[in-house]
Amino acid sequence: MTVAWFGTFWDVYSNLVLSVGTNALLALSIWLTLACGMLSIANAAFMAIGAYASALLTLNFGWPFPVALAAGMAAPALMAFLIGRPTLRLSGVYLAMATLAFGEVVRIVLLNTDRVTGGALGLNGIPQLTRWWHVALALAVTLAVLWRMRRSRIGRAFEAIKEDETAAGLMGIDVAGYKMLAFVLGAAIAGLAGALNAHLTFFIGPGEYGFDRAVEILTMAILGGIGSLTGPVVGAVILTLLPELLRALQNFRLVFNGLILVLIVLFLPRGIWDTERLRRWAGIVRRQA
């Protein structure tokens, strides 16, 4: 009985559940740069590069999936490395805008190289190779690596750079090097999410990786809260499921989607997963008990 129920549930919602997973990866990819004090919104573009690189390999050359996934991480990481040096000198809003412009350029290049990428028609008939445990494993490994990193010298360096870049430099921290590390690693995670997603949905096209996606990734991370690793994951879960949960509202459902976004920003300043607030609540409960 339970098994049958789960079977139907999985038939209907497997894609949604796996989307939650890839979106969580994307939110973590931007968390990494945010944790280092950089607002880079090139993650949609890195996702695109990862998706196209891996899909072209499996589709045209029949490469094994793990190799294609690795290539889907390596290609955006390389791209990040190349543009990182000049770009990461920028800070604040200027970095955001430069990375946004870079994203647009990537999208237009995909549109114009239609012999390879299919242009606006995108790539069709991508083999559906992504299994649920691929996504679960990718998410688990990413979380483990990032968790470990937070508690290491690298994490402390990120924290110092985020607090005050100049002071961190004076303390002898290699600011440019650590920033580059966050940027390149973030690009690789976004590429992985792109590669997994491409092999889940049979189809990819340049339209998916534009301004809207960039903003959506940022929103997931901020909404969930960037104070911890749980925050971005929670943000991804909520933003992916919200439109589905609101399906009953029909025509005006996206109005409520927007409304909920505004309300969360207004009333939960540190995002939904605010460790301090949670600890406070836990404290109240303990005191009462």
Partner: peptide, 14 residues
């Protein structure tokens, strides 16, 4: 595309 997949699955299986 993601929504189209979700909707197709809901209609067909649920």
């Amino acid at each position: 595309k993601e929504e189209a997949i979700n909707v197709f699955k809901k209609l067909i299986f649920q």
